[in-house]
C-alpha cells in the first residue's frame, strides 16, 4: 500500500532522517520504535506532507507529492495524540469533520454515506452517548476517543498514529490500539504507529522498524526486530532485561 524509498529529512544542517526505505502491505501494522530524537515523529510528518523531504513516498503507486490534500485524506488518516481544542465544538461536530475530504462540490457539498459513517464511528469508539457534549468538558481519554472516531469516520485504508504524549496515557493507548486492531481486520487496511512502549509494540504490531539518530537500524517482522540486541542498540540500554526486572518486582 505505502512504499517509502530513500526518505531523507533535513532540519537545517541537522539530518533528522536519512535514507529510510520501507513498504507497508495490507493487513500489516508497522510499529516504529526508537529513543527520543531518533526521527520517529519526523517520519510521520513526512508522510503527512508537513515537512519537506527528499526521496519518494508512494501510496498505491501514486507519489504523495502529486496528490491533493483531500485525495490523500480519503486514503490515509493521521491520529495525532496531542490535542488542545479552544472552542466549545461538540463531539459530533469534530467527528463529522472527518468526512471533509469526502464532500463533493463547492457550495452544496453532498456526502451520501457521511451520516452513517459518523454514527458508526461514534458507536465504535463508545462516544455515541457523548456526541452532543462540548469538547471543553471531556476528559483526556474522551478527547482521544473523539479524534479516533474522526479517523474512523474519515474511512481511510491506512491509519498513521503519532506517538502518545506521555506514558500516563497507557490506558487510552491500549483502548486505542484495541480499536485499531479490530478495524484492521477488514480487508485492504493497514496501520503505522509510533510507540514508546515496547510491550505494546509486541502485543499489537505485525512488523516493526527501529530508528536510531535518523537511521533505520532494523526493519522486518515484529518478533525479530524487537529482539534484545536490537533494542539495546536503539535505546543504548538493555530494555528487555530492565523490563523483566521491573516485572519481577511487580510479581514479588
Amino acid at each position: 500500500m505505502l512504499s517509502i524509498q530513500n526518505l531523507t529529512v533535513n532540519h537545517g544542517t541537522l539530518t533528522a532522517l536519512s535514507d529510510v526505505s520501507v513498504s507497508i502491505q495490507a493487513g500489516q501494522w508497522l510499529m516504529i520504535a526508537g529513543a527520543n530524537g531518533a526521527g520517529k515523529s519526523t517520519f510521520v510528518h513526512a508522510i503527512a506532507q508537513s515537512v519537506p523531504y527528499q526521496g519518494v513516498i508512494r501510496y498505491q503507486r501514486r507519489d504523495l507529492k502529486t496528490m491533493r490534500p483531500n485525495e490523500i485524506a480519503r486514503e490515509i488518516a493521521f491520529l495525532s495524540q496531542r490535542h488542545q481544542v479552544n472552542y466549545a465544538f461538540t463531539v459530533e461536530e469534530v467527528v463529522t469533520l472527518g468526512r471533509f475530504a469526502h464532500r463533493q462540490g463547492f457550495f452544496s457539498a453532498t456526502d451520501s454515506q457521511g451520516e452513517r459513517k459518523v454514527h458508526a464511528a461514534l458507536e465504535m469508539t463508545g462516544m455515541l452517548a457523548l456526541k452532543d457534549q462540548s469538547m471543553l468538558t471531556l476528559s483526556g481519554g474522551e478527547v482521544q476517543r473523539t479524534f479516533l472516531a474522526q479517523v474512523f469516520a474519515q474511512d481511510p485504508n491506512l491509519i498513521i498514529l503519532d506517538e502518545p504524549t506521555n506514558h500516563l496515557d497507557l490506558k487510552y493507548q491500549k483502548q486505542t490500539f484495541e480499536l485499531i486492531q479490530e478495524w484492521i481486520t477488514q480487508p485492504n487496511r493497514a496501520a503505522v504507529s509510533v510507540v514508546h512502549d515496547i510491550g505494546m509494540a509486541r502485543a499489537f504490531g505485525t512488523h516493526a522498524m527501529l530508528l536510531e539518530r535518523g537511521k533505520m537500524i532494523a526493519y522486518g517482522d515484529n518478533r525479530t526486530v524487537l529482539s534484545r540486541n536490537n533494542l539495546m542498540n536503539a535505546y543504548g540500554m538493555d530494555v528487555e532485561g530492565w523490563m523483566r526486572t521491573i516485572l519481577a518486582q511487580w510479581e514479588a
Binding site: P69, Q84, V85, F100
Partner: peptide, 23 residues
C-alpha cells in the same frame, strides 16, 4: 464558502491538514 475549513482550523491546524484541508 470556507466555513467547514474554518471549523477544521479552529479545532487544530494539524488536524485540519490530516482531514484533507489545503491549509
Amino acid at each position: 464558502s470556507s466555513s467547514r475549513e474554518l471549523n477544521a482550523l479552529a479545532i487544530g491546524e494539524d488536524n485540519a491538514r490530516y482531514i484533507g484541508v489545503d491549509v
